[in-house]
Design a protein around this nucleic acid. Structure first.
Lengths: 187, 187
DNA sequence: TTAAAATTGTTCAGTAGTGCACAGTTGATT
DNA sequence: AATCAACTGTGCACTACTGAACAATTTTAA
């Protein structure tokens, strides 16, 4: 991607995040984003069609970053729920979320937080299907595969919301331990 | 000035400052500046001819900022050495210098610090000629005007170097008081 | 309700940045 | 001395950003 495009994109995301942390999504005007990002009007519209489009793109970008490492290291790490270090991928994701706190809190606390959550669950589902449930023996449940996937990703998302609401007091490792303690026994 | 030009200029200055704080002027290559600023090679050369040129421009910019407020408020403030609040302009300048610490320390500690100092003295001289010596009666000296100007600006520059070297421990107000205590009695 | 002010979305000619290539110079290693 | 790698400075076609204008909304205030 052209250096200029990337810079402009970053500037818009940065501006949007800043604005989101101080006022609600619907109250933010495109003009404000343009001013905060310090770009020309036509430049904004050459990147995004609407404010919703911007939000959608930002979520996509964010998650692809959050999940990219986890997905790329697939070969070198054992991220499955079975094995020596079960669910270490969750720790990875929690770290990324914590490091992106500024952006994520901004998005989550806006009226369109549900959009963010939809993306989050979608990515999580993919991840869990690809990595986690492989090689795990079903012990205590006869529930179908897709039910379990939904259960794991849903629980995780709810936990993350709780974590953020409580100012991320727990460390990623600690939180991952708690999570495994309520997930591992039932699958 | 075109928005893009200003951004590029800022990026180059920022990159240059960053590099100056970690390595010496002569060891810095233009390529490094280009990489750190994240711009294209031809872009750099459309802004500056050489590294020296960049340094010169950066000094000029810096001082025009440092001195701009002092010069612009000429009408509203009494910056003369005579009057109620003698030499309050010095406090102003010291504040600006402290707030630009990052840039200035970088420039001063490089081999071309003398270039910076030359600019500094030049600006100071202008300022002192325009504002400070007006309306001050010569009491204890028969020395000519330009001698006094050089004495005041020279002393100030030396003081600033001392201040920076000692990590700017004193507040601008405190330092300005000291300065006046050694300048006012003799003119 | 009406007027003024602000925001939106689009167009377009002009300008700055990009990225690549190139030849020439410097500098370090062997 | 010779080689290799990195840096320098310039040129150019291509592309993204600019800024100003414009009509059409929407918001705000009176």
């Amino acid at each position: 991607m052209d250096r200029r495009q990337q810079k402009t994109r970053d500037a818009i995301f940065e501006a949007f995040s800043t604005l989101l942390s101080s006022k609600s999504y619907t109250k933010i005007t495109i003009q404000e984003i343009i001013d905060e990002a310090n770009i020309g009007r036509s430049t904004f519209y050459s990147h995004f069609e609407t404010k919703d489009d911007l939000l959608k793109e930002m979520c996509t970008d964010l998650f692809s970053h959050v999940f990219s490492e986890s997905l790329n290291t697939e070969k070198t790490h054992d991220f499955s729920l079975a094995g020596d270090n079960p669910g270490s991928m969750f720790t990875h994701i929690l770290y990324h979320l914590r490091d992106n706190k500024k952006n994520i809190v901004g998005i989550l606390t806006c009226e369109s937080g549900e959009l963010f959550l939809r993306f989050f669950k979608q990515y999580l589902n993919e991840l869990i299907i690809q990595h986690l449930l492989i090689g795990v023996e079903r012990k205590n449940t006869t529930a179908p595969e897709d039910f379990l996937v939904n259960h794991v990703s849903g629980s995780f998302v709810e936990m993350v919301q709780w974590w953020i609401k409580n100012n991320m007091k727990q460390s990623p490792e600690e939180l991952a331990r708690y999570f495994l303690s309520v997930i591992l026994p039932i699958i």
